[in-house]
Design a binder for these strands. Structure first.
Lengths: 331, 331
DNA sequence: TTGTAAGCGTTATCAC
DNA sequence: GTGATAACGCTTACAA
């Protein structure tokens, strides 16, 4: 035994196979080698249960085959799904995922990025809220939903198109007076375009509409108050609502029901995300569905691209509409 | 510039500070060093933006400060929550998480474990379904909910106690005829004890009960059929049901409602997990709540324990009951 | 085609 | 207390 620990190294394999260290390395890296040598090496490796030490390799090659994925948490179904799909996309390419959670804390976000420099990951995929994140330009970086600067590609769903789609859907379903409601962070991001798209269609079609935007509110109270203030004799002033998340859509749905308003008969609601109920597997509400699998695939493929000049600034992936009980069914 | 890449090494810091390599290493590792030296080193490191290379360090020390977390997926809220809490517990200790997803595939599970040997993680935390997983005894290993063998500690909720708690709760709420329903994998695991605990209380209290166990069924149909077969004149034969997951509990709840049975007036249901609705943040149904945060904390702390002799075989953490609309409220 | 040896960025063992 | 120097396990010129 060459070492106190019984984990074999290339040296051990070389000795066992009766070849040199370099030959073993070549075999392990798929470099052409005489067939008899190759066999002796693979046999010896098999016998010893040899596994290449990726840390030693990484030290030499400056490639670690690992990517850091930075997200606020995994409680939100969108983040959980994103982490799931990103990890699968990375595994498919024999990369591993280093998962880091920030709890929406800008400092934690920055710290993660610093930490990645130590760990020498080959890249970072991040969904962050820190508006002045310092990004090391030497490491490949892709953001989700958050457009940092021209150097850093951002992958998102087609938020603008999704907003338009929601407006057109509501109008085609007969809505006359539309409402946009937004909940979430005040940090500007790609997500803001959902409102812009929605409003652009409203204007184009000369549809009556209003936007209620409440940033960084921990509670839904302001939205409830708005609804209370716009209900007269059991009738809500608007007949079509687009919410910027499914969660808000469901909350508003509940509130309206409780206020005696019928959904979707009197008021139709469309959310955004396409969240599935984890009991039934069906959509929670009518929604604009984000293509999370394709977003993950795109993020990984952009991140790992060999030629890193000429990267897209923004890659917006197509969304689609799903019916989920809060809109009238087209027959 | 000593290298083509501009990422500074200890050598660069040493040169900048005018000290030797070893001194820099000592400072970085918090080993006693003359105050003036320490200052020069930290200043130089700061100036150069030096970050320790954890791969080089890992090569030397055989410690990587990373732990592999192996789960089926992140779609199921229990797994997502587990991944979240495990990652936080690890980050708190300055460990990073390597996330691997298996899709319940036994081969993929084995492959992950093999892969971890290459990546030289300091440990593995896994929730797997492969009954004959080969575990390398040289790497610390902790399982969740799955008891492998006497060498590998398993962390779980107190499944047996949870089963007992469910039975006692239903009985104390006035139920006379109990039913246990189980869905899930046929691979034996700690989770089986939920039934055992439930049944033990039923026997002890001489309560009438029945168990419906359907393994590996993709569909809920058999459960629905069972319910149909046991409904006569709008009355269900049982008045208290314990389901081994919240998902099943909700499915059964729906089915009963659709069959004209009132819940919780006529039939009370308790699930297991304590899943929260991601819209309202409230429990989906009355349930035995798993202490996922404490389980994660326990798993990490056992995994990282210095003295790895005398480890517990099983660590079952206390559960609690939560009311969630499918049981009568105690007033 | 195969073997040899230098070196990746650290840590750790020595003399000093 | 500080500074050389030899590993750690691997890749990669380069020599044979």
């Amino acid at each position: 035994m060459s070492k106190s620990q019984n984990v074999p190294t290339m040296k051990d394999v070389a000795r066992e196979a009766g070849v040199s260290l370099g030959t073993v390395s070549k075999v392990m890296n798929g470099i052409t080698v005489g067939e008899s040598y190759r066999k002796r090496v693979t046999d010896a490796a098999e016998k010893l249960g040899y596994q290449i030490n990726s840390y030693a390799r990484g030290l030499k090659t400056n490639k670690t085959y690992s990517v850091a994925v930075i997200l606020p948490d995994l409680e939100h179904p969108f983040f959980a799904r994103l982490a799931d799909e990103l990890t699968r996309a990375l595994m498919k390419r024999d990369y591993r995922t280093i998962l880091m959670l920030t709890s929406y804390d800008p400092e934690a976000e920055q710290e993660c990025i610093t930490m990645v420099r130590q760990n020498k990951a080959d890249g970072i995929i991040a969904l962050t809220y820190n508006p002045d994140l310092e990004i090391d330009p030497s490491i490949p970086f892709v953001t989700i939903d958050r457009h940092c600067n021209a150097e850093v590609p951002c992958v998102s769903s087609d938020n603008f198109g999704g907003g338009r789609m929601a407006a057109e859907k509501l109008l085609s379903l007969g809505c006359k007076k539309l409402l946009f409601m937004r909940i979430g962070s005040s940090v500007s991001s790609e997500v803001d375009k959902r409102a812009a798209g929605f409003e652009s269609i409203c204007r184009m079609r000369n549809a009556e509409f209003e936007s209620v935007i409440l940033d960084d509110s921990e509670t839904e109270q302001p939205f409830y108050r708005f609804i209370d203030e716009h209900i007269a004799q059991g009738k809500f002033e608007f007949d079509g609502i687009f919410c910027n998340t499914d969660k808000l859509a469901c909350l508003i749905w509940n509130k309206l029901i409780q206020s005696g308003v019928r959904v979707p008969e009197d008021v139709q609601i469309i959310g955004y995300d396409g969240t599935l109920c984890h009991i039934t597997g069906k959509p929670l509400c009518s929604s604009i569905v984000q293509p999370i699998d394709r977003m993950a695939e795109a993020a990984v493929s952009i991140l790992l691209k060999n030629n890193r000049s000429n990267l897209p600034v923004l890659m917006a992936l197509p969304v689609h509409y799903t019916e989920g009980g809060t809109t009238k069914e087209v027959t």
